[in-house]
């Protein structure tokens, strides 16, 4: 199955040109946005029993669709595993990849991708059983650790144990699902992944209260959307959709008050919502692009809260993901 998927994706590379320069036009002609998403990670990308996708990454895709079509439902989500995700984007199977993907230099340069920004500042952590009585990742020497394949996690894990002179037994699985299942069955002492994912996975374990996330964060994991190299217009659109969501939060524009805000006299708000200037057209979109995003999907704070924050079962603190003026790292360049 997986090999077939890879081969099909490879065939895409042979087809001339593909969707290199005209992504916006292709998406508009098709009438739907193809978005590579996780599919198994609560809080970031997960379809529910009715097939409705929810998650922070999913909402970024919806925001792009809202900006283009004025309809946040015109997205086809393609569930990708960590190891197949880049091939799917390279070959044009998806228009953008928003799948809790860490921005690294080699991915940005040698895979033919461009990361457009950071929708979640994360870091790698460890999940262990309480019964092991481990209080720190530094006590995990000689432990077996279950990990998902094709992730920065796999590399950080090896680095961390090497740097601290600890021995390690990794058991590598193709998907997070299988890795977590093996951890739950006792195959490993610990499961490692991005800390945000650990909270989500913990909820799915048989007795979630028997497991804790260790305090150490062993890496920087800036997660963000990625697009193909070579289409600057599309790159700009995806980049500015996320910036618009962050700017909207900063300006206090929410999905509830956006209609009133159209009457605002604040120049920042007027430029963002398109009542002044033509910043949307410059992107190749419409004047009210940001209004569509906020109205149909929400600002960054709303999206965070509903998917991973206090309004969700995960209850993750904003932490690094607070706005820059509230002590966090989320900062968007101004619309002007």
């Amino acid at each position: 199955m997986k090999r077939i998927a890879i081969l099909l994706a490879l065939a895409g590379i042979f087809v001339s040109q593909g969707a290199s320069a005209q992504t916006l036009k292709t998406v508009k002609d098709r009438g739907i946005l193809n978005c590579g998403s996780n599919g198994t990670l609560a809080g970031f990308g997960l379809p529910d029993a009715q097939g409705k996708w929810t998650g922070l990454d999913v909402d970024v895709c919806r925001a792009v669709a809202a900006a283009i079509f004025n309809d946040a439902t015109k997205v086809k989500f393609v569930a990708l595993t960590a190891k197949d995700r880049f091939t799917a984007l390279q070959s044009g199977e998806v228009d953008l990849l928003v799948r809790n993907t860490t921005w690294t230099s080699s991915r940005d340069t040698s895979l033919g991708l461009n990361f457009t920004g950071v929708d979640y500042y994360d870091g790698q952590g460890f999940l262990v059983r309480k019964s092991l009585k481990v209080n720190s990742a530094l006590e995990l020497g000689e432990a077996s650790v279950c990990v998902q394949q094709g992730t920065t996690t796999e590399l950080n894990l090896a680095d961390y144990f090497r740097a601290h002179n600890m021995k390690l037994k990794t058991v590598t699985f193709a998907t997070a699902n299988e890795a977590v299942k093996a951890y739950d069955a006792g195959r490993c002492d610990s499961y490692t992944s991005d800390a945000s994912a650990l909270y989500g996975e913990r909820l799915r374990l048989a007795n979630s209260n028997d497991h804790i996330v260790l305090p150490e964060i062993i890496s920087k994991e800036p997660l963000g959307p990625a697009v193909r190299h070579g289409d600057d217009q599309w790159f700009d659109i995806v980049k500015w959709v996320l910036f618009a969501m962050i700017n909207a939060e900063e300006a206090g524009v929410t999905s509830k008050n956006v209609d009133e805000m159209l009457k605002s006299t604040n120049p920042d708000v007027k430029r963002l919502l398109g009542t002044e200037g033509s910043y949307g057209e410059q992107l190749g979109l419409t004047k009210d692009w940001a209004v569509r995003i906020v109205k149909l999907v929400g600002n960054y704070g709303e999206v965070f809260d509903r998917n991973v924050g206090m309004g969700s079962p995960l209850k993750i603190e904003r932490g690094l993901n607070k706005l820059w003026n509230k002590g966090g790292l989320q900062y968007a360049p101004p619309v002007r």
Partner: peptide, 17 residues
Amino acid sequence: LVQVFTGTVLNQTGQAL
């Protein structure tokens, strides 16, 4: 071979072909 090479190595290097 498939797990190690067309799995992790392919993903880390991105050189599918």
